[in-house]
């Protein structure tokens, strides 16, 4: 071998080694903050988490002050936020899942048509719209014109708009993975078009669709900004969609603004974090369990 070539190899090996350490260091730097966050939340928040935390609404300032002064745990919990979040997420799913699935299927089926391409780019733009602006839109549409006041419905609409692009994208991308041969097999059996969609396309891509929906849900669960302009928050447990309701992230913001309730911030954050995390894990297990393509 030419002597210069052997030199080259030694140098290459050194560069290789250095680069490896760089990559490892990078990954450590990324992972450490995640553990720090979870650890911090757990240490500061676990004390408040008991049965009452889930069943009682948020305390008022006075109760919290008394408890904080005597060093006890703060009474009350996040029940009003939990029910509000649940109500709005359900309602938002009700709006966004059918709409998103249908739009996604339409875009997939007509991928090359101008109108479908237009929808696809609109979806991409919608995904980039800051969530507070979606809150303002829902405020204009619903708070001003439909419920004539802050309401759970308005909150749901803003969340539904946030879910839409995520569901449309994941639907289109999942369906794209279905081999054409599967569609042809259905058509060759004389299957009508609509039946091919709901008996073949949707079941075959079920895991992908469910993953998309779950990820969209976990995304909106933590959304705060649009809710400030729409659902506003409420100290009591309420299931009336025309009235203001609270939500877990809204409560975190409320707790933060009250110096007596700081320890509840940690507990509520810990809970929200775990909830979103388990949603993601669920999405993962669904994705692997019903995987056909």
């Amino acid at each position: 071998m030419h002597p210069e070539l052997t030199d080259n190899i030694a140098r290459r090996n050194r560069t290789n080694g250095r680069f490896r350490y760089l990559v490892i260091a990078g990954s450590v730097i990324t992972v450490v903050p995640i553990f720090l966050i979870v650890g911090n939340l757990a240490i500061k928040g676990y004390r408040q988490i008991n049965l009452a935390f889930f069943t009682k609404p948020a305390p008022d300032t006075f109760q919290a002050m008394m408890a904080a002064a005597s060093g006890e745990i703060i009474p009350g919990g996040i029940a009003n936020g939990l029910t509000g979040s649940l109500l709005m997420v359900l309602l938002a799913s009700f709006i966004a899942i059918p709409l998103g699935l249908m739009t996604g299927i339409f875009v997939y089926e007509n991928g090359t048509r101008r109108y479908a391409r237009f929808i696809r780019s609109l979806t991409e733009i919608l995904q980039g719209v800051p969530s507070i602006i979606l809150g303002i839109i829902a405020y204009l549409w619903v708070v001003k014109n439909i419920t004539r006041g802050y309401s759970a419905l308005a909150g749901s609409v803003s969340l539904a708009i946030m879910m839409l692009p995520l569901i449309i994208r994941s639907t289109e991308e999942t369906m794209r993975m279905i081999p054409i041969a599967i569609r042809e097999a259905a058509f060759a059996l004389g299957t009508p078009y609509y039946k091919m969609i709901y008996k073949i396309l949707i079941p075959v891509s079920f895991s992908g669709l469910a993953t998309g929906v779950l990820l969209a849900l976990s995304r909106i669960l933590g959304e705060t900004a649009p809710l400030m302009l729409t659902a506003l928050g409420s100290p009591a447990v309420s299931f009336d969609v025309t009235r203001p309701v609270s939500a877990v992230p809204l409560l975190i913001w409320d707790f933060y603004n009250d110096p007596n309730m700081v320890s509840l911030v940690w507990s509520a954050s810990l809970f929200l974090m775990f909830f979103v995390l388990s949603m993601n894990l669920l999405a993962r297990s669904v994705a692997s369990k019903h995987k056909y393509i």
Partner: peptide
Amino acid sequence: RKVGMVFQRPNPFPNMTIYENVVAGFSLN
């Protein structure tokens, strides 16, 4: 229904059992 078709690559419906695949022509119609 009168003129059936078999394709180049085997394409059983992946969401269906063997049994369901055979009667798919009926259930899909």
